[in-house]
Write a protein that binds this DNA or RNA. Structure first.
Lengths: 202, 202
DNA sequence: ATTATACGCTAACGTTCGTTAGTTTTAAAT
DNA sequence: ATTTAAAACTAACGAACGTTAGCGTATAAT
């Protein structure tokens, strides 16, 4: 786990940007932390913007690996109950967000969303759109399998996922102050239970 | 509607902070826009931080006026259907957010949430907690009136409100780029309809 | 052994930053 | 008409900003 200089710059910038925002962090601050002179940073990144860009791009490709590929869905959905499937997804996502670097990237997205068109694109396309599209397919398949009630699959996707996003916002803020997050986690469990109660055919 | 200098500074800072973030805006930029010298600004605000503080404080008191007082609830709830009540709340909130200054304040909250403890407090306490608490009381009363099904009122509050927060996040980003928001607005309507379908006693 | 490349360094560039001291103008109160 | 207070101004402070030019050295390829 020894990092080369470029990686050190990357993770130091990730940490600082996520606390103070891009404009609130100077090249000097980053290089001081890394232990090199300001000028040396430019051997690794063309300029300050490129550091942020590399962070956002990294998050993009990282996040794209979290959802299972759609061609594997049929196999998965047939052999598990709705409850098992949703709770497994929940565990996956929780695990994904337990990596503190991912939490930092999430924070940067929030902070930079109005300064960086790329950040906005990642939020709208990669987080919202991709997730909702994936879930829409899942729920359509579950309806076809007669495992859940035939509500509009897109509505179901939104009803399921959007509370999760808000809970994540709350979770991230609490975590930032080192506060207790157990209540938010309970709420997330309650949300999943409530959703299951609504859609399950009894 | 003619503004004095202090108000001009306030609204100029509001606009710039909401686009570039607190650290991304300089005193020179604000005063240039207002049409005064940098030093003159200090006749109205002690320092840069105090400008942001005044914006957050203003939002706080402004937002606190949006929810109807709890002592008026019984009267309102008895003479209207659940649907009327929720849709009226929706209209109120929409109207509240049509004021572009409020959208700017919302953006600042997002941008500054990890730099400013006050911003975090406003998000957690004033936006999340207060809203959920209000809705919890509403749903409890509706259950007592036998107007909705007896789910856990807090769960209902979250199921109702948290998708709204996420939709608002999406809405704000789309608005920022001048993109079409009609789909998000439709989704919000769908969400309310879905929620009504779930909780209404038929 | 020589050459090339990667990557650190020193030093500095011109600009901008938040803020202050001190002074003049403006307009209302006496 | 004089006093007073608010709010504008000029000028500047030291510090920090992102970035560049140029140089030294270590390592790896020829």
């Amino acid at each position: 786990m020894t990092l080369n200089t470029k990686e050190k710059i990357f993770y130091t910038a990730l940490d600082l940007f996520s606390k103070k925002g891009f404009s609130g962090v100077s090249i000097r601050e980053i290089t001081r932390e890394v232990g090199i002179k300001e000028s040396s940073l430019y051997n690794h990144f063309a300029n300050k913007d490129e550091i942020l860009e590399s962070i956002l791009t990294y998050f993009r490709s990282d996040f794209s690996k979290t959802l299972p590929p759609i061609e594997m869905l049929d196999a998965i959905l047939q052999k598990s109950t709705v409850e098992e499937f949703l709770k497994a997804g929940h565990r996956n996502f929780k695990q994904f967000m337990e990596d503190e670097n991912r939490v930092k990237m999430w924070r940067i997205l929030q902070i930079e969303q109005f300064r960086s068109p790329l950040a906005r694109e990642v939020i709208l396309e990669d987080l919202f759109k991709t997730t909702i599209h994936f879930l829409e397919i899942v729920f359509q398949k579950l309806i076809d399998l007669n495992k859940i009630r035939p509500y509009n699959p897109k509505t179901l996707a939104i009803e399921y996922q959007y509370p999760v996003f808000s809970l994540l916002t709350e979770y991230t803020i609490l975590k930032f102050d080192g506060k207790d997050t157990s209540e938010v986690e309970t709420r997330l469990d309650n949300h999943i239970d409530f959703f299951l109660e609504i859609v399950t055919i009894k």
